[in-house]
C-alpha cells in the first residue's frame, strides 16, 4: 500500500523534522528582516530538490538570503558573478599542470558547492548559461572526458535584473523551465527597513552563524518529504485539471510542461510538510502556482504586459477543488 499509514511511531520523526525546519526559519528570520516570505519559498524550493530564480533589483538582499540558507543548513556556499566574458571553465573548474606530480590536476570550480549563487545570470553568454543549466539538470559536470558528481544536496540560486536590457542574454523559455520557482524579494516593509537602517547590515554576523542542521539531515528531510507526504488520487486529478486548464487557457500559447507538473507536485508536498501535514491539500498548489507557473508558460502577446500572477490566479479560479 502506498498510503502513509498514520501510526504513532511514524508520526514522531515527521514531527521532529518539522520542528528542525521551524527552528531554521526562526533563526533565519532574525537575520533577514522582512524577507520571511521569500525565505519560506526558497526553503520550499530547496527541500523540493529544485533550483530558484530570483528576479529582483540589486541591493534587496538576494546574496544575504543565499548565504543565510547555506549557513543555517550547514552547507558550503559558492558565488559566481556573471559577466559576458565568463567562461564555462570559470564555473566548473579546470585541470592545471602540477609540476611536482608532473600531471594535470583538476581544480574544482565554484559550482562544486552545495549552494551556488549565480548573480545576474542573464549577463553570462549563452554558452556559459548552457553549461550551468546542464550542471543544474544533471547534477554532474564533465570536463576533459571525466565526469565529476556535484555535491548533494545541490541548490542553485540565480538572480537576474529585470530592468537592465542592455548587454544581456535573456534566458530562453526552455531553460527557464529548469528553475523550479521564480520569485522576487521585493522591498522590505517600513518597520523591517527601519531595523536594518538602525542596526546596519548583518552580513558579517551571518558568516559566523551556527548551523541548525547538517548535510545528512537535510538529505533525510528531502527524502522524508518525497516518501511520506501522501498525495491522494483526488489531488492528482485536481493537479491534472489545473494543468489541462493552463493548456486550454485563452491567455496562453503554451501550457504547463510535464516537468512543470512534476514541480507542482513536489513543491505542494513540501508546502504540506512545512504546514505540518502529511497529506497534500489543494491550497498547497494554489499558494505556490504563482511562483511555479508564470516562467514556464508562454503568454499571448497581448497579455505579455499584464500581471502574469493575476492571470494564473484567474485560471485557477476556473478549476473546482475536489471536496
Amino acid at each position: 500500500m502506498s498510503r502513509p499509514t498514520p501510526l504513532p511511531d511514524d508520526a514522531t520523526p515527521l514531527q521532529a523534522k518539522n520542528e528542525r525546519i521551524d527552528a531554521a526559519i526562526s533563526v533565519l528570520s532574525h537575520y533577514l528582516h522582512g524577507k520571511e516570505k521569500a525565505l519560506r519559498l526558497a526553503l520550499i524550493c530547496f527541500f523540493s530538490n529544485g533550483h530558484l530564480l530570483i528576479e529582483d533589483l540589486p541591493g534587496l538582499g538576494k546574496t544575504t538570503l543565499a548565504i543565510a540558507i547555506a549557513k543555517v543548513l550547514g552547507l558550503t556556499f559558492g558565488r559566481i558573478q556573471c559577466t559576458s566574458d565568463l567562461l564555462p571553465s570559470d564555473i566548473t573548474g579546470l585541470s592545471i599542470y602540477n609540476k611536482n606530480l608532473s600531471a594535470f590536476e583538476f581544480q574544482q570550480g565554484p559550482i562544486f558547492n552545495h549552494i551556488v549563487l549565480f548573480d545576474e545570470i542573464n549577463r553570462a553568454t549563452p554558452k556559459t548559461q548552457s553549461a550551468l543549466l546542464e550542471a543544474m539538470a544533471e547534477k554532474q559536470v564533465t570536463i576533459e572526458g571525466r565526469t565529476y558528481d556535484l555535491p548533494r544536496p545541490f541548490f542553485v540560486i540565480a538572480t537576474q535584473n529585470p530592468t537592465e536590457q542592455f548587454g544581456t542574454f535573456p534566458l530562453p523559455e526552455s531553460q527557464l523551465d529548469r528553475f523550479m520557482m521564480k520569485i522576487s524579494i521585493g522591498y522590505p516593509p517600513r518597520t523591517a527597513e527601519r531595523e536594518i537602517l538602525k542596526g546596519g547590515s548583518k552580513r558579517k554576523e551571518i558568516y559566523s552563524m551556527e548551523p541548525v542542521m547538517d548535510k545528512d539531515e537535510v538529505i533525510e528531510i528531502q527524502q522524508c518529504i518525497k516518501q511520506r507526504v501522501y498525495v491522494s488520487d483526488k489531488i492528482i486529478d485536481y493537479f491534472l485539471n489545473v494543468i489541462a486548464a493552463t493548456r486550454e487557457s485563452k491567455y496562453l500559447i503554451a501550457g504547463l510542461s510535464t516537468r512543470g507538473a512534476l514541480a507542482l507536485v513536489q513543491t505542494a508536498k513540501t508546502d504540506a510538510f512545512f504546514r505540518k501535514k502529511d497529506f497534500v491539500v489543494p491550497e498547497n498548489l494554489k499558494e505556490l502556482a504563482q511562483y511555479i507557473l508564470p516562467h514556464r508558460v508562454l503568454f499571448k502577446e497581448e497579455y505579455e504586459s499584464a500581471d502574469k500572477k493575476e492571470i494564473i490566479r484567474s485560471i485557477l479560479e476556473e478549476v473546482p477543488v475536489p471536496v
Binding site: R3, P4, P6, Y230, S232, D233, K234, I235, K277, D278, F279, V280, V281, V323
Partner: peptide, 9 residues
C-alpha cells in the same frame, strides 16, 4: 475532515 479525506481513508 481533510486529514481523512485527503489521506484517502
Amino acid at each position: 475532515f481533510e486529514s481523512v479525506y485527503y489521506r484517502d481513508l
